[in-house]
C-alpha cells in the first residue's frame, strides 16, 4: 500500500498539477460568488510527516480555522483546509468586500462564507482530480472548527494515523487588490485510495 512518503517526483508533479488546475477553477468560482476578481494559486506542494504538521500551522496551540470534508465514492479521503485565525479574518474581508482589518468576530455570515470557501476549494480540487482519473468522488457537507491547530488536526489525523504517517499539503494563496491570504490544504486519502488515484492517473509506478 502506497504512502505519500514513497511518492516519486513524477507522481508528486501529477498531484501538484491537479492542485494548480483546481486552484484556477476555484478562483473562477470564488470570483462569481463575490463578484470581484480573486486570484488563487498553489505556490507549494509538499509531503509532510504527521508530526511536522502542527509546526507548519504555527504550533499546536496556535488559533486557527479548520474546514473539514470527507470524500466518498471510488476512493475515501479527508480534506482539511486550515487558515490561521488572522488570515481567516482577512479572507472574510475579501469575500465580504470590506476593507482589510474590518472583520473581528465570526458571526453566522462570516462562518458560512468561510465554509463556502472550504467547499469551493475542496470541490474544485476534486473536480480536477475526477477529470483526470474518471473516479467517482463525492464530498460531504463541510464541518467547521475554530480552535487550536493541534486539536483541529488530531481528530482527523487520528483516523489517518492508523495507516500512514505522511500527508499531502498544498499551500493555497488567495490574492485580491494586492492583499495575500495563505491557507494550507491537506489531502489525506484512506488506506489503498492513493494507489487507486495514482493508477487512474497512469503514474502508478
Amino acid at each position: 500500500m502506497k504512502d505519500f512518503g514513497e511518492l516519486s517526483g513524477l507522481q508528486l508533479d501529477a498531484l501538484r498539477e491537479i492542485g494548480n488546475i483546481g486552484a484556477g477553477n476555484a478562483a473562477t468560482a470564488l470570483a462569481q460568488m463575490v463578484n470581484a476578481k480573486i486570484e488563487m494559486t498553489v505556490p507549494r506542494v509538499s509531503i509532510l510527516s504527521l508530526t511536522d504538521v502542527p509546526e507548519l500551522l504555527g504550533g499546536a496551540d496556535s488559533h486557527v480555522v479548520g474546514i473539514y470534508l470527507r470524500v466518498q465514492g471510488s476512493i475515501g479521503a479527508n480534506i482539511l483546509f486550515v487558515l490561521p485565525i488572522d488570515n481567516a479574518r482577512l479572507l472574510v474581508d475579501m469575500l465580504m468586500a470590506v476593507p482589510s482589518g474590518s472583520t473581528r468576530d465570526f458571526g453566522e455570515i462570516e462562518l458560512s462564507a468561510l465554509q463556502e470557501v472550504g467547499n469551493i476549494v475542496a470541490a474544485t480540487y476534486l473536480n480536477a482530480m475526477v477529470m483526470f482519473t474518471q473516479l467517482k468522488m463525492v464530498p460531504s457537507v463541510p464541518g467547521l472548527g475554530i480552535d487550536m491547530a493541534g486539536a483541529i488536526l488530531d481528530a482527523i489525523l487520528a483516523q489517518f494515523g492508523e495507516v500512514g504517517d505522511y500527508v499531502l499539503v498544498l499551500e493555497t494563496k488567495f490574492r485580491k487588490d494586492r492583499q495575500d491570504v495563505v491557507g494550507q490544504f491537506f489531502l489525506l486519502p484512506e488506506p489503498g485510495s492513493l494507489d487507486t488515484i495514482l493508477s487512474a492517473l497512469g503514474v502508478s509506478n
Partner: peptide
C-alpha cells in the same frame, strides 16, 4: 502527538493542542 516522556521536579511536562 503520539509521544511520551518522563521528568522529575522541578521540570514540567507539556502537550499542546489536544483535540480528540
Amino acid at each position: 502527538m503520539a509521544d511520551l516522556k518522563v521528568a522529575r521536579t522541578p521540570d514540567k511536562l507539556m502537550t499542546a493542542g489536544l483535540g480528540s
